[in-house]
Every structure is written in C-alpha cells, then in structure tokens.
Amino acid sequence: MLLVDNLLLAPFNSLIWVFKEVHKLAQQEIDGEAEHVAHALSELYMQLETGELTEEQFAVQEKVLLDRLDEIWEREEGAGDAAEQTDESEEHDRDD
C-alpha cells in the first residue's frame, strides 16, 4: 500500500519540490540584490571621500540606491506579513 501511495503521489511531491527550489533561488536573488545595493552605497561613499564625485552627484546617486534598498526591504516585509497572516489563518482554522 505504501509503495502504491508513493507512486501515485510522486508527481505532486516532485512539483512541490520544484516550487520550494524556485522559492529558495528567488530568496537568494533578493538577498544578493540587497547586498549588491549595500556594496554600491559603500563604493559611492568612497568616491565622495576621494573627490571623484561632487556633493550633488553623490546626493542623486545615493537617493536612487537608498530608494532601491527601501523597495527591497518593503518586499521582504510584505512577504513576511503575508506568511504571518497565512499562519494565523491556519491556526484559526485548526481551532474551529
């Protein structure tokens, strides 16, 4: 019986595994994007200190990078809030 169940559920288990892998890779890409922006910010500060950039150029580029970083953090918080809401609704369903 167990072997038959495994055979019948194999396509679904494979599909779930694929979705988990895609999610993991997407999360790694988001994390990498935040690190990339932070690295770009530190390079920008070094360019300002060495005189390669003027204050005006620095302010424009810094605003762009900080806005991008804020968007990344908002996406992460939104994903976390959605996961919390899902957990809360599952707990509520179990209580009923």
Rank of each mutant, 00 (worst) to 15 (best):
D70E: 05
E90V: 04
L66D: 00
T50D: 14
A82W: 10
L25A: 14
E55P: 00
G80S: 15
K24I: 06
Q85A: 15
A82C: 14
Q47S: 14
F58Q: 08
D95K: 06
T50R: 14
K20R: 11
V64G: 00
W73R: 11
L65V: 02
A26D: 11
Q57S: 13
Q47W: 11
D87Q: 08
G80E: 11
Q85N: 15
Q61D: 08
S14K: 03
V4N: 08
D70R: 02
A10P: 02
G78W: 13
I72V: 14
G80M: 10
L2N: 00
V22P: 03
Q27V: 04
E49Y: 04
E29P: 02
W73V: 13
V22I: 08
I16C: 04
E77G: 00
L8D: 13
L25I: 11
A34E: 07
F58I: 03
A83R: 06
E35S: 10
Q85H: 15
A34S: 07
V4M: 10
E43I: 01
N6T: 03
E90L: 14
L65A: 03
R75M: 12
E84K: 09
K24W: 14
M46H: 07
F19K: 11
D67W: 01
G51E: 09
L25G: 09
D93G: 01
N13P: 00
